[in-house]
Design a binder for these strands. Sequence first.
RNA 1: CGGGGAAUGGCGCAGCUUGGUAGCGCGCCUGCUUUGGGAGCAGGAGGCCGGGAGUUCGAAUCUCCCUUCCCCGACCA
Length: 470
Amino acid sequence: MAKAPVLTPQSEDFPRWYQDIVAKAELADNGPVRGTMVIRPYGYSIWEQMQADVDRRIKAAGAKNAYFPLFIPESYLTREAEHVEGFSPELAVVTVAGGKELEEPIVVRPTSETVIGEFMAKWVQSYRDLPLLLNQWANVVRWELRPRVFLRTSEFLWQEGHTAHVSEADGRAYAVRILHEVYESFMRDVLAMPVVVGRKTAKERFAGATNTMTCEAMMGDGKALQMGTSHELGQNFAKAFDIGFQSSEGVQELAWTTSWGVSTRMVGGLIMCHGDDNGLRIPPRLAPVQVVVMAVREDDAVIDRCRTLAEELLAAGVRVELDLRTETSAGRRATDWELKGVPVRLELGPRDLAEGAVTLVDRIAGSKDAAPLDGIANRITSVLDAAQATLFAESLARREARTAEVTTIAEAVEAASVGWARIPWADLGVAGEVELGTQGITVRCLVMPDGSLPDSDDTPGAVAIVARSY
RNA sequence: CGGGGAAUGGCGCAGCUUGGUAGCGCGCCUGCUUUGGGAGCAGGAGGCCGGGAGUUCGAAUCUCCCUUCCCCGACCA
């Protein structure tokens, strides 16, 4: 008898499918305050995997972790004109504390350029103090008008890097380096997500930045998601917070700063990029659980063999979980592990044991076959590698299939109903960007035909990638 | 803030038009039978129907006020 689908099918209602997955894979719950979320243990373990990998890459790029306060004096925000204008509407402000009205309201950080700028000014005196490369893992608060779990929550977790350099060229080089060496490579090699790395238009630029760069990914419904950004802040914050230094020539100069971040939004992107109608599909390199070893039936020999199998895999460096809950039906447990997107399920029952085999279910390939127990670790390793490659190839193929080369706004609008459009920026322009905006379509970024980053807003030959987005 | 909806056990919903004191599915608890694709049967727990005022012998249901939430747009990692 056919059961009702576990999840709302993607084709029926994609947003509903997303919400179903978040709930049924036990990733998160809505918090009591509008727009907040409770990240559940499984969802958090995914974030921890992301954090660990990104943190390693950030450190490899030379930045050091630090921590700055959650509370920022309101006056700090007002020091950079564009910054305050951009963030004012979404600030949470504390006006009462300790039972008293505060003399100066305190802002709950929406981002930390201002406080960090203040301290960079203290710490930087000489060109020898530069570059100053900082990063912090923190929560930030932005009172978003339309929250969506993981994608846009009032409070979210992220990493924000802040650096100061002696020259514009140094700052730019570092912002670009982070974009490629940390973000793009992490997304490509670990998340198995092909991202387009490009430059934001003036309209989409971060408040206070002179240049914003982005990693854009295509979701399963053809919409775009900004997965990470890297900003050149020019000397805007250096001016506002007086981050000055004496150069090797003895001249007093202002530093050039950058900032860059990725957030828990990546979890949402991961879901919408790889998930299918059976649930999440987590790329093996990221997966908190790469293999689940499942005892199909209550049976001492089966349970024993499951334990030794798990130990064997653990010893081979596989992240493995044992599922011995035989009081729950095997079918239910299989469904649950599929929902959670665990790449490989090894099911062991009396029948398998009699044959010296185990049933290997490949979540990503969607296949199921008997694998000899001997040498299973090697087999698993190759299945995981293949799964990683498959997820990337599938999402790249989707992006290519659903990206249209167009030259008119009308064609771009049509293409954006199912995917992305690439249109020469010279054909679109600022006016065309505004026109698309009225239909809910934005310029995600500008790229050069060879995939490189345009140097400026009006670099000849730049192509605009336009799409609907989250 | 503009435009649409909706508030009923943990979740999803019906009941409201035509007032009579609450029901279904999932989940939960107990027992038995099951366990290789979200198990079946039986029994059970759980709700002053968002808040307030009114009409009425009687309100989840009718009237008025309030509050909250969701969806579409403007803001955004």
